[in-house]
Amino acid sequence: MKLSQLQIGQQGIIKEFTDLEMSVKLMEMGCLPGECIKLERIAPLGDPIAVSVAGYQLSLRKLEASTIELI
């Protein structure tokens, strides 16, 4: 399951990344394999999304979220 497939309020645990370059950016922002990640909100126009991870909130586009595989 991908992060982009979560419903609002659902959460998952990060398993791996499918895009190496994106993974470096995401990890620097605290999205690490093993971290719990929860979909908080979707922007009014359907994209981007806001997730809470590692104790803070992060916004990212759906396309970027689709590179995060969840357990």
Binding site: K25, L58, S59, L60
Partner: peptide, 9 residues
């Protein structure tokens, strides 16, 4: 284009 951004409290 990237849009990975912190939403501060």
């Amino acid at each position: 284009g990237y849009f990975i951004m912190e939403l501060p409290v």
